[in-house]
């Protein structure tokens, strides 16, 4: 086999796997809601990262994985102080 897969072939292959991953996310959020202290988790910055990620998954761009990575990344400062020769 040396022909790349078509979208139909890819979708048939990944549908159940993707369904399972989405179910795992939904069940995890449900578990958090059931647990004591769920309000604290709702205000955790990491929960906001998850919410942003779920929004990104729903958009129609073709770089969603890259966008998610940036959501979970610390900001970069172009002006950071470079090292030099030791004194």
């Amino acid at each position: 086999m040396s022909e790349p897969l078509t979208a139909d072939q890819i979708f048939d292959r990944v549908f159940l796997e993707t369904r399972a991953k989405l179910l795992a996310v939904a069940a995890t959020l449900d578990r958090l809601d059931r647990a004591e202290g769920t309000d604290r988790v709702r205000n955790d910055f990491r929960m906001e990262q998850l919410r942003k990620s779920i929004d990104i998954i729903q958009n129609s761009s073709n770089d969603r994985a890259e966008q998610l990575q940036i959501v979970f990344s610390d900001p970069y400062d172009e002006q950071w102080k470079r090292p030099g020769l030791r004194t």
Partner: peptide, 18 residues
């Protein structure tokens, strides 16, 4: 790793390109 990767990679590339 993880949240440090993007910033750290940018810093490394800065040092290499300098």
């Amino acid at each position: 790793h993880l949240q440090d990767k993007y910033k750290g990679t940018r810093m490394i590339v800065d040092m290499l390109l300098d």
